[in-house]
Simulated scan of single mutants.
Amino acid sequence: MTEYIIDLALLTVLIIGITAINGVLTNGIGEKVFGGKGGSDIYNRDLNVKTGWKQVGGKKKK
């Protein structure tokens, strides 16, 4: 019975690990192929919109 539990645990770890690695690799390939050259274009536009905004929240510096 313990061999069955060990086999089941190993199979579970392998399935979850292979799935996670597959997701990361597919995401990386997709970003390289379909990401284009303007990958940070949205980030730069967001920074341009936020220029001049007041900082809110947090603790005041003394």
Rank of each mutant, 00 (worst) to 15 (best):
T51G: 07
K59R: 11
G38A: 12
G52N: 06
A9E: 15
T12E: 07
E31Q: 14
V24G: 03
I29D: 01
V56D: 02
N27A: 11
T51V: 12
I21M: 09
L10R: 13
M1E: 15
L14P: 01
L47Q: 09
V13R: 06
V24T: 14
R45C: 06
L11H: 08
A20L: 13
K32A: 08
T2P: 03
V33T: 15
V24K: 11
K32V: 15
K59D: 14
K61M: 02
I29H: 02
K62Q: 06
A20W: 10
G35L: 00
G52S: 08
N48M: 08
K50H: 06
V13K: 00
M1F: 13
G36K: 04
G30F: 08
M1L: 10
I15N: 01
I21V: 14
E31P: 01
E31I: 04
D46W: 08
V33P: 03
V33K: 10
G38F: 09
K60I: 00
I18T: 14
R45T: 03
T51Q: 14
E3K: 14
V13N: 04
L8F: 06
K54E: 13
K61R: 05
A20P: 00
K54T: 11
R45A: 11
R45W: 12
K54R: 13
A20S: 10
V24W: 12
A20C: 07
Y4C: 07
L14G: 13
I21H: 08
T19R: 08
T2D: 15
K61Y: 02
E3G: 01
K61I: 05
